[in-house]
Computed example of a mutant assay.
Amino acid sequence: MLIAYLLICLVIALAAVVLVLRRFTRRVARRAEAAVPPDGQFLDIDGERLHYVDFGQGPAMVFIHGLCGQLRNFAYLPLADLARTHRIVLVDRPGCGYSTRAPQRDAAIAWQASVVARLIDKLALHRPLVVGHSLGGAISLTLALDHPQHVGALALIAPLTQPATEVPAPFRSLAIRSAWWRRWIGHTLAVPIGMMTGRTTLAYVFGPEAAPKDFLIRGGGVLGFRPGNFEAGSVDILTAERDMPGLAARYAELAVPVDILYGRGDLILDYRQHGETMPAASEHVRLTLVDGGHMLPVTQPEATLQWLQTVAARMPAGQNYRPRNEMTTVSTHAANDGA
């Protein structure tokens, strides 16, 4: 009887802990969304609601963020200045930021690229310069291969280009293959553990450079403290593991110019594996190396902007320019900050 009583007490205690963790997670998620609300507009694409920011006028640039990120990851770039000469479109990948992703989706890299292609169609962009960071680089490369008519050129910043030999240290906890276990952890342990280890994770992701003190708000990092972000990141890790070998085998098919910017000190992706291999894989690839880490759009915004402007200037005049039918005023965090 005593053993049965103790077991019942243990079950009740565990249930209480789980309930507390779930409530804590929901409260943190609500506060995160209050601190960093949606910046832009929404479009329904392929059954998902896609969040994007669209401002400026001129040749179009489409920005695709990386793993566990969202569109504010580009907020440190001088986007307000860039918008004087270019139309800027920032997008939350499906499942990230404020874009939705149904739980049953496997989020294949090819599917995510097709969503971006549909966005380009709906916004009537004509062969934009597609800027992809980290995992966004792999999606950009897939977009250029599967939908070449939608891309004028690629500008890739610290892109994932090759099959990963191992998951980078800060993201190993995301590699959960069970959908049920992934969801359970996302709604209980992921957020409190993420908050406790956040400083260490940011130091690694940004290293050897320092993470800015305002990254949680200005860079949108606080949105990572939500169950959906954890689940989406976990699925992205697994789909990248599955899809990257097939993608890497196709680079000889690239038909658009590809410029790559890599930091020699990148702790997340090795520039020798993911950068220096690319010019040999395709004659269309040009590699630029700088001293820096993985988060160059945040840590070196001016240098990144100058590189982007150089890439854009090499595109044929008028190739990706289509005037907007009407100018709209978009109040965005990035634009207002002159980020």
Results as ranks from 00 to 15, higher is better:
Met1Cys: 04
Ile3Lys: 14
Ala4Thr: 08
Leu7Gln: 13
Leu7Asn: 10
Leu7Cys: 14
Leu10Tyr: 09
Leu10Asp: 05
Val11Gln: 09
Val11Ala: 15
Val11Pro: 01
Ile12Arg: 08
Ile12Thr: 14
Ala13Asp: 03
Leu14Met: 14
Leu14Arg: 11
Ala16Val: 14
Ala16Tyr: 01
Val18Pro: 00
Val18Tyr: 11
Leu19Asp: 10
Leu19Ile: 13
Leu19Trp: 14
Leu21Lys: 07
Arg23Trp: 10
Arg23Met: 13
Arg23Gly: 15
Arg23Asp: 07
Phe24Gln: 13
Thr25His: 09
Thr25Asp: 07
Arg26His: 12
Arg26Val: 04
Arg26Thr: 02
Arg27Ala: 14
Arg27Leu: 15
Val28Trp: 07
Ala29Gly: 13
Arg30Ala: 15
Arg30Cys: 03
Arg31Cys: 07
Ala32Lys: 01
Ala32Thr: 04
Ala34Gln: 13
Ala35Gln: 14
Pro37Cys: 09
Pro37Ser: 12
Pro37Asp: 10
Pro37Leu: 10
Pro37Asn: 13
Pro38His: 12
Pro38Thr: 10
Asp39Gly: 13
Asp39Val: 02
Gly40Glu: 07
Gly40Phe: 05
Gly40Asp: 04
Ile45Phe: 06
Asp46Ala: 15
Asp46Gly: 06
Asp46Ser: 12
Gly47Leu: 09
Glu48Cys: 03
Glu48Leu: 05
Leu50Gly: 00
His51Leu: 05
His51Arg: 06
His51Lys: 08
Val53Arg: 02
Asp54Pro: 04
Asp54Arg: 07
Asp54Cys: 09
Phe55Asp: 01
Phe55Glu: 05
Phe55Met: 07
Gly56Phe: 04
Gly58Met: 13
Pro59Arg: 11
Pro59Ala: 15
Ala60Val: 09
Val62Arg: 02
Phe63Ala: 01
Ile64Ser: 06
His65Ser: 07
His65Phe: 08
Gly66Thr: 05
Leu67Thr: 06
Leu67Asp: 02
Arg72Ser: 07
Arg72Glu: 13
Ala75Phe: 07
Ala75Thr: 11
Leu77Thr: 05
Pro78Glu: 11
Pro78Val: 12
Leu82His: 00
Leu82Ser: 03
Ala83Pro: 00
Thr85Leu: 11
His86Tyr: 10
His86Val: 12
Arg87Leu: 08
Ile88Ser: 06
Ile88Cys: 07
Ile88Met: 12
Leu90Val: 13
Asp92Val: 10
Arg93Tyr: 01
Cys96Trp: 03
Cys96Asp: 14
Cys96Phe: 12
Tyr98Cys: 08
Tyr98Ala: 08
Tyr98Gly: 01
Tyr98Glu: 08
Tyr98Gln: 05
Tyr98Ile: 06
Ser99Phe: 10
Ser99Cys: 12
Thr100Asp: 06
Thr100Lys: 02
Thr100Asn: 07
Ala102Met: 05
Pro103Gln: 10
Pro103Lys: 10
Gln104Lys: 09
Gln104Val: 02
Asp106Arg: 13
Asp106Trp: 09
Ala107Cys: 05
Ala107Tyr: 02
Ala107Lys: 01
Ala107Gly: 08
Ala108Tyr: 03
Ile109Gly: 00
Trp111Lys: 07
Ser114Lys: 12
Val115Trp: 00
Ala117Met: 12
Arg118Trp: 03
Leu119Met: 14
Leu119Trp: 06
Ile120Met: 05
Asp121Pro: 02
Asp121Arg: 13
Asp121Cys: 11
